[in-house]
């Protein structure tokens, strides 16, 4: 896929969760320009054009990043921190999509500048609905800044 057209980046280590998320997005035609990354370190390399993603440079302009907090190697909060600290990436909307209701996680995320914090419902129907709404809102309704 042409990276310039990537609109949604999903960073989620659990393949089944990822599949269910993508499925819900697909139902609403929101998953066409989606990239799924399942490792914190790899996600950082991808987002900041390092390592095998060195070619990415200057090509990324997603409408939203869906970020899980519990990731192998590099945690979601670290990624969030890196994104919001960098001039080039700080304006990309980041939505934390996690199982954690832990107040410290919520607080820390907002502190780092997260754009939205969503706790995944256990109930599949609610979950599908939530994912679809997130997709619709950030991809269609929200007007992102031009980077």
């Amino acid at each position: 896929m042409d990276l310039l057209h990537v609109e949604l980046i999903l960073i989620e280590d659990n393949p089944f969760e990822a599949e269910l998320t993508i499925r819900s997005l697909k139902k609403h035609n929101l998953a066409n320009k989606l990239v799924h990354l399942d490792d914190g370190e790899e996600a950082l390399e991808f987002l900041f054009s390092k390592g095998k993603y060195a070619d990415n440079i200057g090509k990324l302009n997603p409408k939203v990043i869906l970020l899980d907090l519990k990731l192998p190697k590099v945690s979601g909060l670290e990624i969030l921190k890196a994104l919001k600290a960098d001039e080039h990436t700080k304006n990309i909307p980041v939505v934390v999509l996690t199982s954690s209701k832990e107040e410290s996680d919520v607080f820390e995320s907002y502190n780092l500048g997260v754009n939205s914090y969503i706790v995944k419902p256990v109930n599949f129907e609610s979950f599908s609905k939530a994912v679809a709404e997130i997709g619709l809102y950030w991809m269609l309704m929200n007007e992102p800044p031009v980077i």
Partner: peptide, 11 residues
């Protein structure tokens, strides 16, 4: 919660 969501999700 994650596996539960997956069970319910795949159901």
């Amino acid at each position: 919660r994650a596996p539960l969501r997956i069970i319910d999700g795949y159901s």
